[in-house]
Nucleic acid binder design. Structure first.
Length: 808
RNA sequence: GCGGAUGUGGUGGAAUUGGUAGACACGCGUGCCUUAGGAGCACGUGCCCUCGGGCGUGAAGGUUCAAGUCCUUUCAUCCGUACCA
């Protein structure tokens, strides 16, 4: 008998698949389209890890399942190849980023092939390819035209190790997302995309997305919409007014002092002569601190009195003005009215510096604590006795009528900072002209090619290595032809990955970024599979797609219909796989060891629900291999033996149809672990039934069904056995098996018998048995009688076709 | 703090609407077989038990004929976020 040998059959089918081109997605086909993809990888030198293998197992299983259902499936693949790792590697070794990237991609691609993926490679794209970034740059110029790209000098996150600025989304608890260094603030002139202009649409459309709650709320919190009021406070020492933002204008009578962020433009100029030096020192040290240092101060707030006073517009009280770094420069107006009786932070600050505390809200439920919630107003003039929540708008109108305030909405999200002072990225297509300022490079001059350089290292002077390429930098102004200089910063890699899903729909187009009819046919993505990037990437893609919609380039606003968010594959001990711990499992090793790609894929999907984290298990992979081997053996026995007697065809057929129904439903719900369990059960049952004898037709059909049902997860063994059974080399064209309910009904049915909800036995009754008869039979069971001795039956509950519960 | 999850055998996990808790698999145990392989096959495996049964889904209450599932309170773990006024 032929033995199951994945290392023999898998390469065979991988070659057939690649050469046949059968996974090519057809533009504008009659069939329903289905666009599935995962977040394209950065092609690192390390190649594929278990996480990639898991992600591709998910995508490929979905793709094959949908293809079997007759869908015109697009499963494309690309490379997010700009970025720091290639560049840092280049600095270390001198190998140009482009060269290393090319090798890495070739390696990655080969590994994906060895996984048995059904990718349409004709759509392959690569963000560092000039034919790709030409359009990334084109999009930049379009955003610039629409006023959605702008330059601004301000304090920004700066990573001292990577020597570049970072977007808010790339700073994680005060540290650089790449290298983990503590970031500092640095004032620089930078390019931004106005994502805040789209804060409301991005928030509103969230409701319509079939995405996990976790991601939706993460985005909602990140956007952080707050409704409140801006209120102006007169100051005694100058003509300047201080404008604050507050979500609680109803507590204005309790505002006893004002606090400015150290970065606030007035914090130095307002200071009195006596206070000037201490304010200056405080501001200087606050700005110099890393974000970590600022946050570590959360127990002990610090600040300094400016010597100046403001006036509370509600009651005319004098309010000392302080500068403190617990007020953030970048949020709201960078200044707050402190209401120490009803805000914990203001309270802590007031306690420390002995500032006045005036209670204006009463609330019977907790008289001891600081009342931060709603209540009834006191010490609030004409508003006394009113509920805070009721009177909030009224107070804003009152302030507005006196010209000192107005309703206002503020967001936590900031504009997207996209300049990077590095080399390996798409150059920002701008030319700075002494006469015309920043001029976008015309479409006909795109792409602005990234020049080849010798020295990739950033020097930390706030300039990209490109600034040293004087031949490249010096150019002429597109408007006037006079000498001008190129922008030397490159774009954040996230810009490149914010539109690749659209490029897949028209990947070779040399005339435009995509043809609207193709993008509108394929996109939005039906299933987008990923396990990282809750906010950054998924927010940026949404932003750009909204913009493209408004530009008339797309009929839809949202790029991704359903987001399939998967968990992590951890090491066997439940900790994160890491090189330093030496517990990394290499998926290619698993294939090489002889388990094969089918076992690897099936195993990773069997570990648990895909949206949860799971741990690798070396015993588990062997168990899956055993399962595949049992499928193989079952088929070989059939092919070699000659069973003809028919005894149990009905049982085989019922099992087969029951399994089709269950497994199909599990696949549809992306519950792959239970789909595989259902297939294992099927195989186990077939092993039991085979000793009964069966007819050739029934058994063959049962085995062919097995091949079809297992083909999305384990495509190689399915294709091979299908060929052995049918002599056909394309299981893909066989469609998906269907079930017929008529095979699922049987003459008798098992009814559970309970007494007071406790199981006392089961009975077999005719499917169409009379309810009274069933109750009767149940009550007469020996085991039921035994438990009924000392009680009389109060009533009998009968759930048709399920159970009888006798209540005593 | 706030937000999002998750708690079920020795382990990973099943159980769409409340209706036989523990499917399937790992591990473990017993037996069979052999061309000794990474074997294969069959059976068993929640806990306790005086072998009648009793107890069991983080904990405590509640609703119900019936609760892993619904309600209330509470504890633990993980993830995200972080002075957002």
């Amino acid at each position: 008998m032929r033995r199951y040998n994945p290392s023999e059959i898998e390469p065979k089918w991988q070659d057939i698949w690649q050469e046949s081109g059968r996974y090519r997605a057809v533009d504008n086909s009659e069939a329903d389209k289905f666009y599935v993809s995962c977040m394209f990888p950065y092609p690192s030198g390390a190649g594929m890890h278990t996480g990639h293998a898991f992600e591709h197992a998910i995508v490929d299983t979905i793709a094959r399942f949908q293809r079997a259902h007759g869908k015109n499936v697009m499963n494309p693949m690309g490379w997010d190849s700009f970025g720091l790792p290639a560049e840092n590697y280049a600095i270390k070794t001198g190998v140009a980023p482009g060269v290393a990237t090319k090798q890495n991609i070739a390696n990655f691609k080969n590994q994906l092939k060895r996984m048995g993926t059904s990718i349409d490679w004709s759509r392959e794209l690569n963000t560092s390819d000039p034919e790709y970034y030409r359009w990334t740059q084109w999009i930049f110029t379009k955003l610039y035209e629409r006023g959605l790209a702008y330059q601004n000098e301000s304090l920004q996150w700066w990573c001292p190790v990577d020597k570049t600025v970072l977007a808010n989304e790339q700073v994680e608890s005060g540290k650089c997302w790449r290298c983990g260094s503590e970031v500092i603030k640095k004032s620089m002139k930078q390019w931004f995309f106005s994502i805040t202009d789209y804060a409301d649409p991005l928030l509103e459309e969230l409701d319509n997305l079939d995405w996990p709650n976790k991601i939706k709320t993460a985005q909602e919190n990140w956007i952080g919409r707050s409704e409140g009021a801006s209120i102006d406070f007169e100051t005694d020492s100058s003509e300047d007014k201080i404008t604050v933002f507050s979500t609680r204008p109803d507590t204005i009578f309790g505002a006893t002092f004002l606090v400015l962020a150290p970065e606030h433009p007035l914090s130095l100029s307002l200071a009195s002569r006596e206070a000037a030096d201490s304010v200056k020192d405080y501001v200087a040290s606050a700005v110099k601190k890393t974000e970590i240092e600022r946050q570590s101060d959360d127990k002990e707030k610090t600040g300094v009195f400016t010597g100046a006073y403001g006036i509370n517009p509600a009651n005319g009280e004098k309010m000392p003005i302080w500068v403190a770094d617990y007020v953030l420069g970048g949020y709201g107006t960078g200044a707050v009215m402190a209401v120490p009786a009803h805000d914990e932070r203001d309270n802590a600050f007031a306690q420390k510096y002995e500032l006045p505390i005036v209670a204006v809200v009463e609330n019977s439920s907790d008289s001891q604590a600081i009342i931060t919630g709603e209540g009834s107003l006191v010490n609030s003039g004409a508003f006394n006795g009113r509920q805070t929540s009721d009177v909030r708008e009224e107070i804003v109108s009152w302030l507005e009528s006196r010209g000192v305030g107005k309703a206002e909405v503020t967001y936590k999200m900031r504009d997207w900072l996209i300049s990077r002072q590095r080399y390996w990225g798409a150059p920002i297509p701008i030319i700075h002209c002494p006469e015309h300022g920043a001029v976008a490079v015309p479409e006909s001059d795109l792409p602005v090619m990234l020049p080849e350089v010798e020295d990739f290292a950033p020097k930390g002077d706030g300039m990209s290595p490109l600034a040293r390429q004087t031949d490249w930098v010096n150019t002429t102004c597109p408007s006037c032809g006079q000498p001008a200089k190129r922008e030397t910063d490159v774009m954040d890699g996230y810009a490149c990955s914010s539109w690749y899903l659209l490029r897949f729909t028209d990947p070779q187009d040399a005339e435009q970024a995509w043809k609207p009819e193709l993008a509108n046919y394929w996109a939005p993505v039906d299933y987008y599979v990923g396990g990282d990037h809750a906010v950054a990437h998924l927010l940026y893609v949404r932003f750009w797609t909204h913009v493209f919609h408004d530009m008339g380039l797309l009929d839809f606003k949202e790029p991704v219909k359903k987001l399939v968010y998967h968990g992590l594959i951890q090491a066997e001990d439940g900790t994160k796989m890491s090189k330093s711990k030496g517990n990394v499992v290499d998926p290619l090793d698993i294939i090489d060891q002889g388990y094969g790609a089918d076992a690897l894929r099936t195993f990773e999907l069997f570990l648990g629900p895909i949206n949860e984290n799971s741990s690798w298990s070396s015993g588990g992979i062997a168990g899956i291999y055993r399962f595949l081997n049992r499928i193989w053996t079952l088929s070989q026995e059939y092919l070699e033996a000659d069973y003809v007697q028919s005894k149990n065809d009905a049982a085989v057929r019922q099992l087969q149809h029951k399994t089709i129904k269950k497994v199909t439903d599990n696949y549809r719900r992306l519950s792959f672990n239970t789909a595989i369990a259902g297939l294992m059960e099927y195989v186990n049952e077939l092993y039991k039934l085979k000793t009964d004898g069966f007819s050739d037709a029934a058994w063959r059909e049962a085995l062919e069904t097995l091949c079809l049902l297992v083909s999305p997860v384990a495509p190689h063994i399915a294709a091979e056995l299908w060929e052995q059974l049918r002599g056909e080399t394309s299981i893909e064209s066989a469609g998906w098996p269907t079930w017929d309910d008529k095979f699922l009904v049987s003459d008798t049915i098992t009814i559970v018998v309970q007494i007071n909800g406790k199981l006392r036995g089961t009975i077999e009754v005719a499917t169409d048995a009379d309810p009274d008869d069933v109750k009767q039979i149940a009550a007469e069971l020996d085991n039921v009688q035994r438990h009924l001795t000392d009680g009389e039956i109060k009533k009998i509950i009968y759930v048709p076709k399920k159970l009888v519960n006798i209540v005593v």
